[in-house]
Nucleic acid binder design. Structure first.
Length: 618
DNA sequence: ATAGGCGTTT
């Protein structure tokens, strides 16, 4: 038997985009007498009872007066069977409570169906479809699936509507594969089939499936509504597929959907994340040109984007635009500003934004927390850090937890660091590379380098977090606690195993060799890293130069110094001073480097950034 | 349930 119900008439397709049930209200019920139900189902009451007609109101009041039993359900089905009568939302919603009770009273759907039969209800496809809809509306998903299975048991071929509902149910109970199977099995897909599938796939961020379903949808002549389009675009942007995101926008424009300020904002930040600040700016200009006015979100994206690309002046220009427009910064913009000021080393300004939150009636959140913790840590404002770490009620997430962990390690508060780690793993955080780096550091600092090494070995064997940062963390921590041989051993193993290493990894290894007084090996490693395509930076040179000065290795020092000059590497004042001190004892060296020394002297106390000054060499 | 924000190493 084929399941035919004519639920969704083609011309209604788009009109009813948002709800399955709205169709019920499209038809006015033909005047028919409710008492006919009684005549059909009982005997002898003819002519005695009043004869209310079959209207939504009458049906509803009758349902409400009835007990929660099979008879009421039967009555509901009977009404639905009448010509041109369609239940309204109220009736459906009422029935949720009824079937909920019936589900408890009767064991299994089959028993309910048996009961209905004994009441004279003919079990037609429509009955099961209605039952399915009630369960679906009542979020009783396991029963909905049961009804769907019974449909097949009765030999019915479910129609599109039933399959749409059951696909939705499968998505909702997280049976994605089954949901997609249902989707693929729908012979004639309608707008809802695509809309439901897309809405779930978007929520899950399943870009691959979104693409496939969207293509199918368009090929079959349907277009997503603006809401769904926005959601789809969001998935593309979050996945970093901005070019394809643009195609989606193109589709939106072609299908006459207006591109909202939300969409523009997404694209502006998308171009920044793509590494295309100029395109972001062009887009912003275009947006203004067509008369779409940017809002705080758009401006925030611009400020963040400019800061990421070191376009500090541009960022502050946008900030003054925000102020001149009288837009009150929200918590997101404040967080961006805290981050920006910190990055610029303007810790006092970052702190001012933080303390202004109360005045602005904004509540600090986990983003504020993570940024402030990091800011205070970099600026070594440990007093305020401690008060924030103890006083904030923000619930920790993985990122803010990692931020805090890192800071505890820096302060040297191993106890708190390990306590936090225990908390994070008890909370079932999906700990990541940041956490592992923090863990290894904390263990070493806490005087348990052997435990750290064991942990690290285990991580390697289980292939957890094999990024350069983690290798660097353990090697540096071992160097810092004087375990030079262990550090160098691990580093060599990284090289032989071809683990990913970056300039910092090499630099800390060189630091280890310098501290172990193995200066020749340190110099050799400097050459090796270049051969491996990893280019030393000023901190690498600072480390090796500092070692060479200590060992008074003038010849090697001069060679390295020439290298720095040729490469245009700028040294920090501390290192320059050491070099000058050593070489100025020798007449020949002074003449060789006189011009360099003079240049250094000219701007000895102004040129270099302060972060270099505060850090002791090595 | 359409946009913007947070954390590692020398």
């Amino acid at each position: 038997m084929l399941w035919r119900c004519n639920w969704v008439k083609p011309r209604k397709k788009i009109l009813n985009a948002f709800s399955f049930s709205s169709i019920h209200g499209q038809f006015s019920p033909k005047s028919r007498e409710i008492s006919e139900f009684s005549r059909e189902n009982t005997s002898g009451s003819r002519g005695v009872a009043p004869k209310p007609s079959l209207t939504h109101d009458n049906v509803y009041s009758r349902l409400r007066e009835s007990p929660y039993d099979l008879k009421t359900l039967n009555f509901f089905f009977w009404c639905a069977k009448q010509n041109n009568y369609f239940h309204d939302n109220r009736a459906f919603d009422h029935m949720v409570g009824v079937v909920e009770k019936l589900t408890r009273d009767y064991n299994g759907i089959d028993r309910i169906i048996e009961g209905l039969k004994t009441l004279g209800c003919v079990i037609k496809p429509r009955v099961l479809l209605l039952l399915l809809e009630i369960f679906w509306r009542g979020h009783i998903y396991d029963k909905a699936i049961e009804v769907y299975k019974s449909m097949n048991g009765f030999g019915y071929v479910p129609n599109t509507r039933a399959m749409n509902m059951i696909m939705d149910v499968h998505f909702k109970v997280n049976l994605v594969d089954q949901a997609l199977e249902v989707f693929e099995g729908i012979c004639v897909r309608n707008f809802f089939s695509f809309d439901i599938a897309l809405s779930h796939l978007c929520s899950r961020g399943d870009l691959v499936c979104v693409k496939i379903v969207l293509k199918m949808m368009i090929r079959e002549g349907f277009y997503p509504n603006s809401e769904r389009f926005g959601q789809i675009l969001g998935v593309f942007c979050r996945a970093g597929c901005f070019v394809q995101g643009f195609q989606v926008v193109g589709l939106m424009i072609c299908s006459g959907i207006s591109v909202s300020v939300h969409v523009w904002s997404m694209l502006v930040s998308g171009f920044f994340r793509l590494g295309e600040p100029q395109k972001a700016v062009d887009l912003f200009d275009k947006m203004i040109l067509i008369g779409c006015s940017p809002n705080l979100v758009t401006y925030t994206s611009l400020i963040k984007g400019f800061m990421d690309f070191g376009m500090v002046d541009e960022a502050f220009t946008v900030l003054s635009t925000v102020q001149s427009k009288g837009l009150a910064p929200d918590i997101v913009l404040c967080n961006v500003m805290i981050h920006a000021f910190t990055k610029l080393g303007r810790f006092e300004d970052a702190r001012k934004v933080f303390t202004s939150l109360k005045k602005r009636k904004l509540v600090a959140d986990r983003y504020t927390f993570a940024s402030m913790v990091s800011s205070l840590c970099v600026s070594r404002d440990f007093d305020l850090f401690t008060s924030i770490a103890n006083g904030t009620k923000t619930e920790l997430d993985l990122v803010s937890g990692n931020s805090l962990l890192n800071c505890f390690c820096k302060v040297g508060n191993t106890f708190e660091a390990l306590k936090l780690l225990r908390y994070m793993s008890n909370q079932d955080f999906a700990v990541d590379c940041y956490t592992f780096s923090g863990y290894l550091t904390a263990l070493c600092r806490g005087g348990a380098p052997d435990k750290a090494v064991n942990m690290y070995i285990r991580m390697i064997s289980e292939k957890i977090c094999l990024d350069a940062h983690v290798h660097t963390a353990i090697i540096d921590s071992l160097v810092e606690c004087g375990e030079y041989n262990a550090a160098i051993h691990l580093f060599n193993r990284c090289i032989s195993e071809k683990y990913p290493l970056d300039v910092v990894s090499y630099t800390v290894a060189i630091k280890g060799l310098v501290r172990a007084k193995r200066i020749d090996e340190a110099c050799a490693l400097l050459s090796e890293m270049k051969e491996a395509g990893v280019f030393p930076n000023r901190r690498t040179y600072r480390t090796i130069i500092s070692g060479l000065c200590e060992e008074k290795e003038n010849d090697k020092l001069k060679k390295i110094l020439w290298e720095c000059i040729e490469e245009g590497v700028k040294l920090d004042p501390n290192t320059k001073f050491k070099v000058f001190n050593l070489l100025s004892r020798y007449r020949r060296d002074v003449s060789e480097f006189r011009w360099v020394f003079e240049k250094w002297m000219e701007k000895f106390d102004v040129s270099d950034s302060c972060d270099e000054l505060s850090v002791s060499v090595g």
